[in-house]
Design a protein around this nucleic acid. Structure first.
Length: 679
DNA sequence: CGAGAGGTGATTTTT
DNA sequence: TCACCTCTCG
């Protein structure tokens, strides 16, 4: 790691023009980016505040920052920007607030908020509940696609012919108008609004192009049209930038990522230099052969072949199982015996799968064998209802026009305000052109609502008003936030709603974590602007504090995650489950004939493994309660037979340990565990 | 308005 | 299979 290879060196030192680094899996791309930042600062004398590096995840940004800080003394990294696209966009909007349609206290709505808003709009637009439910998913997707393609609401209809789609275009306009009325932005806006502004305002553009002297982009293959446009606008004058990417690891096209942006780069920047990193420092050569052999079946823009000098390593195993239960059991037992035989740590193992439901049975087996495991993915911290509720209280305090937040909490805990009362409140607010919160304290409300309802609303509005005043004045807001939430009776609600004591504890803990995170952000803020409670709340929406916390706490455990979640990670021993048609590749991808992305998913999975790779399949699998006979995945046929150990493909006497051995081990382990528990 | 019964549908999800 | 959502009744 301390020495860069010649290719890496070249990528680090090329600073005079645009550079694309084609970084294969495990080729040390993070090293190249971090070393390059250090190189720019130390060798090229570039001030840190002129360098910006963007990533897609908080985690990647965190890691990159930490690694740069290891390479340089802290005074040299001061002012360096390493952030996610979205954090960058947020920062940008804050600086350029005057050029946006936003007011300073704007809210950020997450995916769920957007969905709720759209649902509301559809119902208001005279669609029945059932109708809107069916369409809302589609609407979200289309609107997000339009935004990411930089198509504004008024132009969306131009691209369409289908009358049903026209409805979505209208909805898009309505949705945007509502967001602006709420003084809110959604996730896509954090990219789209800065991009628009840079396109339209040459002064702002000059300012930013001047400010950013060098731009680095990680996981470039995952950029969408808006993000690529943003990159171009930021670097335009004298294109000095490095983008790092791997088209073979593009697995987010369904989310708007445009891997073709790699090809576009060559068109848009004819002087683009391309450096390929093909030496892999992670896996054995058998694993890489398997990865290469699978991925050659895809069309390629840039040919690339990973190699490694780590030796052949073990054969790649394919295990045929009777059914999904058997599969889970065998993987669990496999891990426990392998771990004990080789004196490994639990954290050296990862089990990967295509869909989350596949983890269920495995979890049950792991629990039974008392194997500690960590389940990644699932609902993120900020998607949890208790967190969203509290965040909504905070959002409403910071932005009284945030109707979306208002609607979420007005009856949580119960204040006796049902749909009927809220409908009337909504109409009233619309008539008087005020937000729902402002309407709640309006004196005229008593004429349209029963006394009880209007009284409750007034009380709620006064409550928010009172805490708004206090929170802005208070130098140490967190205890006040706590006090406010306690006063609503929310904690009691959580306690009474919890189905199990564990669930109650988890939810209360989550709330505590949220408080701690707010405190943390206040303490760690770089400057006073970041320390204000509203800046902190806005930032929180984009961060996953729990994720970070879990990373620090849960260390030595078997890793369970989807293939998507595994991108960017590596493990000594990797198991990929469910190598069956309609699962991997997924049924919907087969129908949509988008097999290539599924193949890349397979490629990502294979290249996660350092030492050993095992794949499993079940002959029968439960689907919707019914047992179904499966077909082995087409990707199995694409593996190089000479590196595979699989019954039926290549018989190897040593391959199959007699089952008894494994059982013996298990008996020993269980005895051991028991004696340990007894102590 | 809210609690319970039935019905439905089920990829992946960086922010 | 199960979780989530809607509808109905008190």
């Amino acid at each position: 790691m301390s020495q860069l290879n010649p290719r890496q060196q070249e990528a680090m030192q090329y600073v005079s023009g645009p550079l694309l680094v084609l970084a294969g899996a495990g080729s040390g791309k993070t090293s190249v980016i971090t070393r390059k930042i250090a190189y720019l600062i130390e060798e090229c004398q570039m001030p840190a505040e002129r360098i910006t590096a963007v990533t897609f995840t908080n985690k990647a940004a965190r890691e990159m920052k930490a690694r740069v800080q290891k390479l340089l003394p802290s005074d040299k990294t001061k002012g360096l920007t390493v952030s996610t696209f979205h954090q960058f966009g947020l920062q940008f909007l804050r600086y350029e607030l005057l050029h946006t349609p936003l007011k300073g206290n704007f809210s950020i709505m997450d995916a769920e908020d957007s969905k709720r808003l759209l649902m509301d709009l559809m119902v208001r637009d005279n669609m029945s509940g059932a109708e809107s439910r069916e369409l809302v998913g589609k609407a979200i997707k289309m609107i997000s696609d339009w935004k990411n393609d930089l198509i504004p609401p008024e132009k969306a209809a131009d691209t369409l012919t289908d009358p049903e789609d026209m409805l979505f275009a209208t909805l898009y306009q309505l949705y945007e108008r509502n967001l602006r009325a709420y003084n809110a932005v959604d996730f896509d806006d954090l990219i789209v609004m800065p991009t628009r502004l840079l396109q339209e305002n040459s002064q702002v553009r000059d300012k930013w192009q001047n400010r950013i002297r060098y731009l680095l982009v990680d996981e470039y293959q995952d950029t969408n049209t808006a993000q690529y446009e943003l990159i171009k606008l930021l670097v335009d004058v004298q294109p000095r930038f490095t983008v790092v990417g791997d088209d073979d690891q593009s697995i987010y096209a369904w989310r708007g990522a445009k891997p073709e942006n790699m090809a576009l780069l060559q068109e848009d920047f004819p002087k683009l230099k391309v450096v390929k990193l093909e030496q892999n420092y992670r896996s054995t050569s058998r694993i890489l052969h398997a990865a290469n052999s699978v991925i050659t079946n895809n069309e390629h823009l840039f040919e690339k072949k990973l190699w490694s000098d780590k030796g052949h390593g073990e054969l790649i195993r394919i295990i045929n199982c009777r059914n999904d239960d058997d599969e889970a059991e065998r993987v669990a037992k496999e891990i426990i015996t392998h771990k004990l035989r080789n004196a490994n740590e639990w954290q050296d193992y990862a089990v990967l799968y295509r869909s989350n439901f596949q983890a269920r049975m495995l979890e049950a087996q792991l629990r039974q064998l008392q194997i500690p495991y960590k389940l990644s993915g699932g609902t993120s911290f900020f998607a949890r209802s208790e967190i969203k509720d509290i965040m909504s209280y905070l959002r409403l305090i910071l932005n009284p026009e945030d109707d979306s937040a208002f609607l979420r909490i007005i009856n949580t805990p119960k204040r006796g305000l049902g749909p009927a009362s809220l409908e009337k409140l909504g109409l009233f607010a619309q008539e008087h052109q005020v937000s729902l919160l402002m309407a709640s304290s309006h004196s005229g409300l008593t004429h349209v609502l029963p006394k009880k309802a209007s009284g409750e609303l007034k009380e709620f509005a006064d409550f928010i008003e009172r805490y708004t005043q206090e929170l802005y004045q208070h130098p140490d807001p967190v205890p006040l936030v706590k006090q406010m939430i306690d006063e609503t009776g929310y904690i009691d609600l959580v306690r009474s709603e919890a189905k199990t004591p564990q669930q109650e504890k988890i939810r209360i803990d989550n709330i505590e974590t949220l408080y701690a995170s707010i405190q943390n952000l206040i303490n760690r803020a770089d400057d006073d602007d970041d320390r204000t409670i509203d800046a902190v709340i806005r930032k929180l929406v984009l961060l996953d504090m729990l994720e970070q916390q879990q990373e620090e706490e849960n260390t030595n455990k078997v890793n369970l995650m989807t293939l998507h979640a595994a991108k960017g990670l590596e493990f000594d021993y990797v198991y990929i489950m469910g190598l069956e048609e309609e699962l991997l590749p997924h049924k919907n991808s087969i129908i949509a004939e988008s097999i290539e992305e599924e193949r890349r998913l397979m490629y990502v999975g294979i290249t996660r493994a350092r030492k050993e790779l095992t794949m499993t399949m079940a002959a029968q699998r439960r689907a919707g309660g019914q047992m179904k006979t499966t077909t082995p995945s087409r990707f199995i046929d694409e593996l190089p037979t000479e590196h595979i150990d699989a019954p039926g493909m290549k018989k190897s006497a040593a391959a199959h340990q007699p089952k008894k051995t494994a059982e013996d081990y298990l008996a020993n382990i269980q005895a051991l565990l028991k004696s340990k528990a007894a102590k």
